[in-house]
Write a protein that binds this DNA or RNA. Structure first.
Length: 277
DNA sequence: ATCCAGGAAGTCG
DNA sequence: CGACTTCATGGA
């Protein structure tokens, strides 16, 4: 995609493949806030501000290099969307949320965030993660960085309950200790989706759906289809054999969409979640 | 009051 | 294996 790097800013002219609202509101990221006609976004220990100006998206940040990768700017989403047009419902979904991009987020941040996401709603997920950063993260000119693995590993369980994590507090406590000591997050980049998933499933609080979200939103593996309550509705709208097994449903959808499954899932998820039929 | 939210773990057969 | 139950929390 075409973009320019200016003085503490990235300028994007093709807004058909970059819509800030679509990207942030499709459920892949939680640490952002809308203020007026702009969005502030935090990732790891970086921050940026997005707004539209003269039919362009302006990303103001001191860390342009980080956010070029983060927003996946070197990938051709026009080509991906063209290929997805062959599938049922994707025309409608991409007409609605065609500006979605899959972010390249931090693996550790995704693991913690999506453990919190389990059986939870998005406003509350955002609130818990914000408190987590405020409680354990380092302050850096006006915002809180995502906490280090050590900070969470050394935390007492009851603090996770205090910030509203509920029964997930135990998962956060156990998993952050393992991540801080004996888990190689970088190895997963080199593994196949199936093998990387197996490793993630060993972590407390990480099941198939959470693992697939981590693999999609951090490792950019796209031969997977995260199955939550909404994805089950998507499955039922396709002409596939009835099933009540989440893994079977997920595998069949991957059989349909192949390596574009992750992208398809995001366009469809964003569409169905905002157009309750 | 009951149900739901980007589900996972534990138990039982 | 597969099916069924339980698990905090808060908003609708």
């Amino acid at each position: 995609m075409k973009f320019e790097i200016g003085n503490d800013a990235i300028i994007i002219r093709n807004t058909k493949e970059f819509n800030t609202e679509h990207i942030l509101d499709c459920g892949q990221v939680f640490r952002y806030r809308k203020s007026g006609d702009s969005y502030t976004l935090s990732a790891k220990n970086h921050k940026c501000l997005l707004h539209n100006e003269n039919n362009c998206v302006i990303i103001k940040t001191e860390d342009t290099e980080f956010f070029v990768d983060y927003f996946d700017l070197n990938r051709d989403y026009g080509k991906i969307k063209d290929e997805l047009l062959q599938y049922k419902y994707l025309d409608r979904a991409m007409d609605y949320g065609g500006g979605i991009r899959i972010l390249n987020q931090d693996p550790y941040e995704m693991i913690i965030s999506f453990i919190i996401s389990a059986n939870n709603n998005i406003p509350r997920i955002k609130q818990i993660i914000e408190k987590l950063c405020r409680y354990f993260g380092k302050e850096k000119d006006g915002f809180y960085a995502f906490p280090s693995a050590d900070a969470l590993a050394n935390a007492d369980v009851h603090v996770f309950r205090e910030i509203g994590a509920g029964y997930r507090a135990e998962y956060l406590s156990e998993t952050s200790k393992i991540l801080a000591n004996e888990f190689d997050l970088n190895e997963l980049y080199t593994l196949s989706t199936v093998n990387a998933r197996k490793k993630l499933l060993k972590l407390k609080g990480v099941g198939r759906k959470v693992a697939d979200c981590i693999l999609l939103f951090a490792y950019h593996k796209t031969d997977l289809f995260p199955m939550d309550t909404w994805s089950q509705k998507i499955y039922n709208s396709y002409d596939l054999p009835p099933s009540n097994n989440i893994n079977v449903m997920s595998d069949r959808l991957v059989g349909l969409f192949g390596n574009l499954s992750g992208y398809a899932q995001q366009y469809l998820y964003y569409y169905i979640r905002n157009n309750k039929t």
